[in-house]
C-alpha cells in the first residue's frame, strides 16, 4: 500500500487542530461545574481539581526529568567503551 498524506503540512490544518483542542479544554472546564460530583477521596471534589493536577503534574514531570537527565545522561556508546 502506498500513501502520501499531507494534511498537517498545511499550517491552517495545524491551527484548526489546535483550535479544536483548546476549545475542548474550555468545554471540560465548564463541564466540571455541571456534573454531579461523587468522590473516592474528598480532594476530588475541589473545583477543577483534575485540570490543575494534570497540568501541574506534567510540567513537574518535564522539569524533574530535565534535572535527572543532567545526572544520568551518557554517550550512546557508553556501555561499549
Amino acid at each position: 500500500m502506498k500513501f502520501d498524506l499531507k494534511i498537517f503540512d498545511n499550517p491552517r490544518n495545524v491551527k484548526i487542530f489546535l483550535g479544536v483542542f483548546y476549545a475542548s479544554l474550555v468545554v471540560l472546564l465548564i463541564a466540571d461545574f455541571l456534573v454531579h460530583k461523587h468522590h473516592d477521596i474528598p480532594l476530588e471534589g475541589a473545583p477543577q481539581f483534575y485540570a490543575v493536577y494534570g497540568f501541574v503534574s506534567c510540567v513537574m514531570l518535564i522539569f524533574i526529568a530535565k534535572v535527572i537527565r543532567f545526572f544520568i545522561k551518557r554517550d550512546e556508546d557508553y556501555y561499549d567503551k
Binding site: 483542542f21 494534570g54 497540568f55
Partner: peptide
C-alpha cells in the same frame, strides 16, 4: 481533564 490538561502542558 487530567489527560487533556496534561496534553496542554506537552503542547
Amino acid at each position: 481533564q487530567l489527560l487533556m490538561f496534561g496534553a496542554l502542558a506537552f503542547c
